[in-house]
Nucleic acid binder design. Structure first.
Lengths: 338, 338
DNA sequence: TTGAAAGCGCTAACAG
DNA sequence: CTGTTAGCGCTTTCAA
């Protein structure tokens, strides 16, 4: 059986108000004795507040929406786990949606979440997000009426976000390769409209320039961050005998490449030096552990949550953006050129 | 600005009821014209129903709770993604919680979800779940007052579940190894109280017996399904020169073993034939692709959802259990003994 | 120190 | 065919 405040009030011979007051630890001059008693009864009856009712009257749900493009991507998996835990520690619950990497999915998710009364939303935008009509997006955000924060993305729009410094990361990665004597470095990029993809591409070019290595368009290959796309790109890359190293916009695409090589019996690790992006966990168990750019997902999440909770608590926080420094993790996939 | 039914009613010069009726597509003799008009206005005002209010009056939230022990485990990741999508297709939203593999986490999650008015819960129990007091668990389920279904687990309690036939899977795996000439087969088991772990252990023993191979207690090692536990078990296993093959209760523990070997420079793939459990995606990109037992997570999820929605819709469904046949996926980690 | 009552946005009898 | 009204469970102002 499910009991409500009314039942407790009856059992304790007090009014509904009294019960509400003590169960919410509100300032009041109710005798300590009565307080104890009421709390005791509530416990006995296994009282659980009906949050729909609370939401309706307080307009606070203690629910936060989380939208990621693809939970299957280990980087997002870790992020989700961390956010879920952190939110719970702060008394919030997670409404989770995997947008299926589509803007439509994101839009529906946002509207649904708002309709469900979330107090705020953490959005890791898909690659489609930024190719959607900017005005529509801003409209969507405004009409939500609740704070929404972007993770793992930057934007010119008047929206708060926390992101990594992707340019810097890619420069570091490129430098690492150059330092090992590589000059013909292939780059696997993501779709252009994704700001992160763009920035990593930018960093790759900057890194080349810094070292006076000419940029060659035919050494860049475009995937979509999925393992499959790396898989499909593999044969094209292998066609270039001059390439000695590969920098990939993320680990996953490298995994696809590796899978293909495995199937074809080519010794990819011997053929190329490689560095990835994301420091995805499986990077450590593959044949030769991958050197990669670590994006501290936990820090990003923590910052985003802090920001969101501040906004929720009504601190008239202006739009802010946080940019986090990436780190190079050296493992075994980069070798000196022969 | 956020508009409600009242605003629409005012704008359309009709009563609240009328609006509610047409927006919910209820049987009514309201002129088609008025219906169109109202819907039009609703669209213009970007009306989004307040689901707290709906829930409060209808007692239906169209929210389903999903609890998994560890979203980081690729098997659960895939499950989560599938469930999330499937539920959305059915008009439901997912309240997600990573229980951190603890019974306390699960209990809190359940209570929280109920308090938030979910219509039902899909629970993938942690390894702690079954070591909790059975009576308390049954009590918890009863007091929830909403249908709860177990995934990836079996139980004697009066609870519906869908699970794989783990015994059969483990027998198949063992047989595969035996068929390749192995007789000294190590087994990495999970914690005993987890029924699945127990069943896989059982299957391993059955498989041995069927082939008249004596069971040896000192060839079995206990982990907890995490990659770390495999990592820690590695040195112990390597101490046994007689072992030629390893059957692991899941892929993850094998991954841990591989990681350790990598660090120590031992050629683990050459040393042992191995078969895992779960057909986790990364199984394909590691040095030598893993032979494993495939558990069709999508089928399991689909069955569980179907079952749950039936219960929610009030079909007085009795407690039912579904058991799914596993499949052996042959890759490269099993070789004939020399 | 405590209680009555209005209201949050929507649904569903019941009346008209 | 459409409107009135009484809740759903809880919070909060105001009064006692």
């Amino acid at each position: 059986m499910k009991y409500g405040m009314k039942d407790i009030a009856k059992r304790a011979n007090v009014s509904l108000t009294t019960v509400s007051l003590v169960l919410n630890n509100k300032e009041s001059r109710i005798s300590t004795q009565k307080k104890q008693e009421i709390k005791q009864i509530a416990k006995e009856m296994n009282y659980q507040p009906n949050s729909a009712a609370v939401l309706l009257s307080k307009q606070i749900s203690y629910n936060i929406g989380l939208i990621v493009p693809d939970i299957t991507n280990p980087f997002f998996t870790e992020l989700t786990q961390f956010i879920n835990r952190k939110l719970r520690e702060n008394g919030y619950f997670t409404l989770f949606v995997d947008s299926g990497n589509s803007y439509l999915g994101e839009k529906q998710a946002i509207q649904n979440m708002i309709s469900r009364g979330v107090d705020g939303i953490l959005l890791v935008p898909s690659s489609e997000f930024f190719s959607a009509d900017q005005d529509e997006v801003e409209q969507l955000f405004k009409s939500a009426g609740k704070p929404i924060i972007l993770l793992n993305a930057s934007t010119d729009m008047d929206i708060s976000y926390v992101n990594f410094n992707n340019v810097e990361g890619a420069v570091m990665a490129t430098q690492e390769l150059v330092d090992h004597g590589h000059r013909k470095i292939a780059f696997i990029k993501g779709k252009d409209h994704l700001v992160n993809a763009h920035e990593r591409y930018q960093g790759y070019q900057d890194g080349l320039r810094k070292n006076h290595i000419p940029f060659e368009q035919n050494l860049v290959f475009e995937g979509d961050y999925s393992s499959e796309s790396g898989y499909h790109l593999a044969p094209q890359i292998l066609k270039h005998p001059e390439i000695t190293a590969i920098l990939s916009s993320n680990d996953l695409m490298l995994f696809g490449l590796i899978k293909w090589s495995k199937e074809q019996g080519v010794d990819i690790f011997n053929r190329f030096s490689m560095v990835g992006f994301d420091n995805t966990p499986y990077t450590e168990i593959i044949e030769v552990p991958l050197t990669t750019i670590d994006q501290d997902a936990d820090k990003m999440s923590a910052d985003a949550i802090k920001m969101l909770l501040r906004k929720i608590k009504g601190k008239r926080d202006v739009t802010r953006q946080i940019v986090i420094k990436p780190k190079l993790i050296r493992r075994k996939s980069v070798k000196f050129i022969k």
